[in-house]
Amino acid sequence: MTTRRAVLAGAAALALLPGRDRAEGATVRTALDAVEAKLGDPQQALALLDRIDPRGLTVSQQLDLGTARAGLRADLAIMAARPLTPALLLRRKVGDGIDPAAATRRLETERRRCAARADRLFARLGVRGTDTGARFSALWHDPRYQFADSAAALADMNQWLARFRAALPTLIGQVPLYCLNVRASAPTSADLASGHLGYRTLPTPTTAGGYVPDFARLADRPSFSLPSVVAHELLPGHMIQMPLEAAADPHPLRLRYTPGFGEGWGIYAERLVADAGFYALNPAAELGYLHWRLFRIGRALLDLAIHGDGLSLTQARARLVAWHGEPAYFAPFDADLARIQKDPMTRAAEMLSALSIEDGALGRTGQRLARYHHMLLANGRMRSDELVRRAAALT
């Protein structure tokens, strides 16, 4: 959680800032390292970074520098704020110029759109209920969508992965071949003994990568819920974005001030697959995608409502039950709401980052869309306002 105290912490380390001559001769990375070590005084940290001329820097260095400057300016505003508001936290975690009220309206519009689409699909399948959440619950417990065992679930994930992998040139554009060297894998005996499940291993030019799903409660993972997991965790999701970001090596300050981008890309990847028509003949799989999307939209809406409007956790829980019925596998309602209460605007940042990426893709097809994806991925994450500026400059 970002608080005024957290921003102020560490001011005593200010004496370690390099002097003017040393700062002017330092590399961008060295200067950013120095700033990272003493975030307690954003004003002096900004003064240090303002001495760096961005001309001649690589794109990744420009993003490091610009993101650090924007984040530090947000920290300055947070230090002066009485009280600390959602708008300030969104400025810090997503980008400049975000109005929480407008964001709430946008999210609610998208929630209604997804719910209406889900209800049409439920009607096609003959699934009834008092609201969208009740219909999802009915589908969740339909034995037709249960796996016999975890091996069957894993095989199903890898079948979907093969389909998405084959379509990547159209979905994303060209990506390094090593990003394709991934699969969903069974846990090792050590994983099972330690309970270490639901984790990723990133591919490199010399090693394979993948995702080890958590099937400890297999009944809670109906078959229709897994295609979007594949899109999010594997391809075209994190197994492209995260290895390329690792290669770009963004400074930790860029990661600090863009926490929602990585998850935003995963959410975008889910929609990219759905919009491409992969579920056109499989309404249950499309419902699985819509459940994941409603889960993430709901998180964002409640993050804004709890911290901006004083919505109680009891009221928030009732909305989740009505909106999507069943919790995401890793996020039981009560535990997830407790996290949202403790860490304001993190879940909103994730979904708003996804919407920012989706907005930039609107109207782009073919090579124009591929160039947009390259801009997003080649040099690591960026803030939403930076994304808008760079997207507008693309041909």
Rank of each mutant, 00 (worst) to 15 (best):
A102D: 13
A102V: 10
A103W: 00
A103D: 02
A103H: 02
R105Q: 14
R105S: 13
R106H: 11
R106Y: 04
L107A: 08
E108G: 04
E108Q: 14
T109Y: 01
E110A: 13
E110C: 04
E110Q: 14
R111I: 07
R111M: 13
R111Q: 14
R111G: 06
R113D: 12
R113S: 14
A115M: 10
A115E: 15
A115V: 08
A118S: 14
A118R: 06
D119E: 15
D119G: 07
D119Y: 00
R120P: 02
R120G: 09
R120S: 14
R120M: 13
L121D: 11
L121K: 03
F122M: 12
F122V: 12
F122H: 10
A123Y: 00
A123V: 10
A123Q: 15
R124W: 03
L125I: 04
G126Y: 11
G126P: 10
G126R: 05
V127M: 11
V127W: 12
G129K: 02
G129Q: 03
G129A: 06
G129D: 07
G129S: 07
T130W: 07
D131R: 02
D131L: 05
T132A: 13
G133K: 01
G133S: 12
A134N: 09
R135N: 07
R135H: 10
F136R: 01
F136I: 02
S137C: 09
S137P: 00
A138Y: 04
A138L: 08
A138W: 03
A138P: 07
H141E: 12
D142T: 03
D142C: 03
R144W: 04
Y145E: 10
F147G: 05
A148F: 01
A148N: 10
A148S: 13
D149I: 00
A151F: 00
A153W: 00
A153N: 03
A153F: 01
L154A: 05
L154V: 07
L154C: 10
L154S: 05
A155T: 14
D156G: 04
M157Y: 01
N158S: 11
W160D: 15
L161H: 08
A162I: 06
R163V: 11
R163F: 06
R163M: 11
R163C: 09
R163N: 09
F164A: 01
R165S: 13
R165K: 15
R165M: 05
A166P: 03
A166S: 14
A167L: 07
A167K: 09
P169G: 12
P169C: 11
T170W: 06
T170D: 13
T170N: 10
I172V: 15
I172T: 07
I172N: 06
G173Y: 08
G173R: 11
Q174W: 02
Q174G: 13
V175R: 08
V175E: 06
V175S: 07
P176V: 10
P176D: 09
L177C: 04
C179L: 05
